[in-house]
Design a protein around this nucleic acid. Structure first.
Lengths: 194, 194
DNA sequence: GTGTCAACTTTACACCGTGTCAAGCAAAGG
DNA sequence: CCTTTGCTTGACACGGTGTAAAGTTGACAC
């Protein structure tokens, strides 16, 4: 069988993610992975030159499992107006909570290698891109009014707290972050039932 | 001088944070810290039995620097209504962005020790507590209407994305997370200018 | 002065996880 | 039968953490 190597590689990736998922708090050692996959530690290095390569490959492997390409495509070619929002929720709704779990597990791996961080940033960026595209599309549909409407103070607080995590999304949506927060503060004062 | 040891300890903590801040992407080694502080590596272990202890101590040290206690107190005993929001913004406004930078630097240290993770979780929790208290207080003041008002789709998307990060806050504010998202989706459909 | 104690120094080393090197082995396929 | 492929075992170098032991310096007590 010439596909033995491919099978082993697949098995390694599967096992790696299984271990990461099972221990989202502790770094998983190469020897642990080898043992769980039923192969020698050296065979691991035969397939992946370094631990960081294995981690990056596992991240890519998860893209397939989670059909990220399909989601990206789906959220791009969605209908208009309310249909767009439905499509967006359908495409990303269950993936967004999951990707946080994955990020946590990879974070715990403590790889100092930049490739691992980059690979993961790319994945988070894909989600942000998807969200930004959806918002933009809704805006173009006229489903959103261009000005910020009055908001409740809770909303403003939520946004102040979340804007840091999603600063890239803010930029992609064409909102200046600083100005955004300032506006939020101002609106908070205006809209409070004082 | 009997305060030599205290001075050295202070110097170590200061140096450690300086190095963390300077390299928020790379783990800082004990030898690096010792060198920067102008002492031997062993002196470090004399003050802090392990690297994780030093990291935890540095986190606590930052609490003092950032006057977290004062902020917590200030956001608790604030005025009512609009004054509360002002007090909240004054107390936490500049700290919240900063704490993300700190978290990043500590995250990069790749300490597998649970104490470090716990220490940092506690700090993030303190911020969440502060926010939750402010929101609750505003609610009690009657500054917020009890029902969710109509929202723009952007708001809902923001919240859907941020709710994961701040699930604890959701709980503390007495909101069920699942129900929150469901409500958000429903409101999104209702309020879209379709 | 002498002695003592505390803070720190230097040197050396054990441990652990990553990554490497070398030699061997079993099975598929010409 | 012989070669190639995909693995095996065993040994080891390296770097960073943490430990152990003996030596040095300076402040203060008597």
């Amino acid at each position: 069988m010439s596909s033995t190597k491919l099978n082993t590689r697949e098995k390694i990736l599967k096992t790696t993610w299984a271990l990461l998922e099972a221990n989202p708090d502790k770094p998983v050692r190469m020897s642990d992975i080898a043992k769980a996959a039923g192969i020698s530690r050296q065979a691991l290095y035969l397939h992946f030159p370094a631990r960081s390569d294995l981690l990056v490959a596992t991240a890519r492997y998860l893209d397939e499992v989670n059909q990220v390409d399909r989601r990206l495509a789906a959220s791009r070619k969605a209908a208009t107006g309310i249909g767009r929002l439905d499509a967006f929720i359908e495409a990303w709704g269950n993936y967004i909570p999951e990707i946080y779990g994955m990020a946590k597990a990879f974070w715990a791996q403590q790889s100092s290698d930049e490739a691992v961080a980059t690979a993961w940033n790319d994945r988070m960026q894909a989600v942000r891109h998807g969200c930004a595209a959806a918002i933009k599309a809704l805006k173009e549909d006229g489903a959103l009014t261009p000005e910020h409407p009055p908001k409740q103070a809770t909303d403003i607080l939520w946004m102040m707290l979340s804007v840091r995590n999603w600063e890239q999304l803010t930029v992609e949506c064409g909102w200046s972050q600083k100005r955004y927060i300032t506006t939020m503060k101002k609106l908070a004062r205006q809209t409070l039932v004082n």
